[in-house]
């Protein structure tokens, strides 16, 4: 038994990140650590900054202050606290280490399911077409779409498209996967198949930060839940603590109450 008292460095380390759009403060000193293999879900009312937080993590959005590190490496800005933006190639290379799945799928409509997955593999990872194809087929099989490799996105259902979206992200073997309300645009009967895929990834040890309104999923699949309100982390902890009806966090209680009223 190792008696290692040293803190295991977090895979994702968000520290005091703040961001404003004009005069609107969207993130207020957000801090969050996510360890390797952990699944963290983010809940909170609309407009609380959940999407913005995820977008900052892969630098689709810049932030005003604080720092975000993945695997010890500063995201977006150069090392040394100079807040000098990384160069374009550097940023692209960093983003390749972070997978992102979007609410609106954002599949490339001119490419087949396999083509969507192969693009990053060939252009960014430098794989041959044959290699990329076999990786794409592997992942399509994993998400239950082995037979749809040559279908265009428009020929797929929403649930199928989102599963391709997940496959596209994980095929790049990112260090961390960011998922932003990935089932919100889906018909209710298609939500299950997508969440099932995410569950499988969690079991495989994929590190994930997932914004969701699926409370049952958050409760069962995540190690911790972050409750965001008004641009800040209002509560964070294991699901049973956060989702407990008798929490003394006023905001969280009213969010859950409203949520239960509208969803059950």
């Amino acid at each position: 038994m190792a008696t290692n008292t040293q803190e295991i460095p977090a895979l994702l380390d968000v520290r005091d990140v703040s961001k404003a759009f004009g005069t609107v403060q969207v993130l207020r000193s957000v801090s969050l650590k996510v360890s390797r293999g952990e699944v963290v879900t983010v809940i909170g009312p609309s407009g609380s900054g959940k999407t913005t937080l995820l977008r900052c993590v892969n630098f689709l959005e810049s932030y005003d202050s604080g720092s975000i590190r993945i695997d010890g490496k500063e995201v977006g800005f150069r090392e040394g606290g100079s807040r000098q933006r990384r160069g374009e190639r550097d940023l692209a290379a960093m983003r390749a280490e972070t997978g992102m799945v979007f609410q609106s799928f954002n599949l490339f409509p001119h490419l087949t399911a396999a083509g969507n997955i192969m693009l990053g593999l060939t252009k960014v990872r430098g794989k041959s077409t044959a290699e990329a194809r076999s990786i794409a087929e592997h992942w399509l099989g994993r998400v239950g779409l082995g037979h749809k490799a040559d279908s265009l996105p428009a020929e797929l259902s929403g649930g199928q498209q989102q599963r391709v979206g997940i496959a596209r992200a994980v095929a790049m073997e990112p260090k961390i996967l960011l998922l932003d309300e990935i089932t919100s645009a889906l018909d209710p009967e298609l939500v299950g198949e997508v969440l099932e895929v995410v569950r499988g990834l969690a079991q495989d040890g994929m590190t994930m930060v997932m914004v969701t309104h699926e409370m049952a999923f958050a409760r069962d699949a995540s190690s911790r839940i972050v409750f965001m309100a008004d641009g800040g982390v209002s509560a964070i902890g294991p699901p049973r603590d956060i989702l407990a009806a008798e929490t003394d966090n006023e905001r969280l209680r009213s969010f859950l109450a409203r949520f239960r009223a509208s969803h059950f």
């Binding site: 892969n58 689709l60 374009e88 190639r89 692209a92 290379a93 960093m94 983003r95 390749a96 280490e97 972070t98 997978g99 992102m100 979007f102 609106s104 954002n106 599949l107 490339f108 693009l119 990053g120 252009k123 960014v124 596209r168 992200a169 790049m172």
Partner: peptide
């Protein structure tokens, strides 16, 4: 072309030039 296309292209690590030519 919807903004999400560029973002998806960025998210898989394509450079600006690759975003343009491939997506």
């Amino acid at each position: 072309i919807p903004r999400g296309q560029t973002e998806a292209a960025m998210a898989i690590g394509l450079t600006f030039r690759q975003q343009l030519t491939s997506v």
